[in-house]
Amino acid sequence: MINKQKWTSKNDSGFSPFDLAMMILSLVSVAIVLTMTFGELNQEIYRLMLMIDTGICIIFLTRFFSGLVTAHNKKHYLVNHWIDFIASIPAIEALRFARIFQILRVVRLLKMSQSILLPLIKQRAKTTLSSLMLAMILILSFSSIFILLVESGAPDANITTAEQALWWALVTISTVGYGDYYPVTTAGHIIGSVVIISGVSFFGIISGYMASVFVAPDEADRIEAQEERADIKSDIEHALERMEQNQQHMEKTQLKMEQNQQQMLSEIESLKSVLKQKLHNNNKQD
């Protein structure tokens, strides 16, 4: 049986969207390392993959140290996440394969959390941020690799180095398009079209997310005001109900008092009648 506490720190509430994003990045990184190790790559493709892997390592290190800073028990966090730090060290190929343990750790979290969609739905803000970060990294990485693969061997190509490929991918996804570097092959044009469409969609999602961030507080205030009005209405209805019950009780009490008063008057009249009769009998005897 898996000990859940062993695989989570006190500041981890089980599986989170960032864990899933880190697992996907770990898979991408392992694939890049395997390609760099066993693939026959030219120098520029190798340099580009090394730059991408280094960028992913920086993200892993940022995630590790941010978790360490926010952890309530830092010793417990280090004991359970030291492999994340080892796997995040760049430029050492032997250590990069330790990212497989990162993947296994997230897989265990997924098994313990019974459902993947439920945490993603409950943590919508984290899901959106992690999805945007992951999409940006994947689009930049794969578009720069593919464009360099198809353009580096073409005549009159101007995207021939790792830096040029990354720069082209960045300005294309941002839809700026300086025009200093551009594809000259048909495959490069297709890749550029896909990157442009992805960039437009990407920044459209960012705009929608930022709008929701600013609108959400107003919506929350509106919902809170509605709840307050509903509470006030409920209190007024309860007060009116209590007043009505008190009025009914007072009416019953008043009716009972009137009945008692009638009974007392009747008894007084009966006593008067008896007294008069006795007085009359005494007068006769005298």
Rank of each mutant, 00 (worst) to 15 (best):
S266D: 13
E241K: 08
E251Y: 05
G177V: 07
S13L: 06
G39L: 00
N158K: 10
R108T: 11
H72R: 06
S201Y: 11
Q261I: 13
L149V: 15
E40D: 15
N42Q: 08
T185Y: 05
A187Q: 14
I89M: 00
M36S: 09
S201T: 12
T172I: 10
V176D: 13
N11I: 00
R222E: 12
S212F: 09
I191K: 07
D53Y: 02
A91T: 15
V274L: 14
F60Q: 04
H249E: 14
L50R: 15
E219I: 07
T160L: 15
L148H: 03
G67T: 02
M133P: 01
Q102E: 06
Y46R: 09
V106A: 04
H81K: 05
Y209K: 07
T35L: 06
F38C: 06
Y209S: 11
L166A: 07
S266P: 05
S266L: 11
I205L: 12
M257N: 14
H81R: 06
S113H: 09
A91I: 12
E237P: 05
D84V: 05
L110Q: 13
L25P: 00
T37S: 13
Q123K: 14
Q102F: 07
L27E: 03
A239K: 11
C57P: 01
L120Q: 01
L271N: 09
D218F: 08
Y178P: 14
K4M: 11
G153T: 13
Y181Q: 10
Q285N: 14
I196M: 15
L27Y: 02
N282V: 13
Q259H: 08
Q43P: 04
Q102K: 01
M250H: 06
S174H: 07
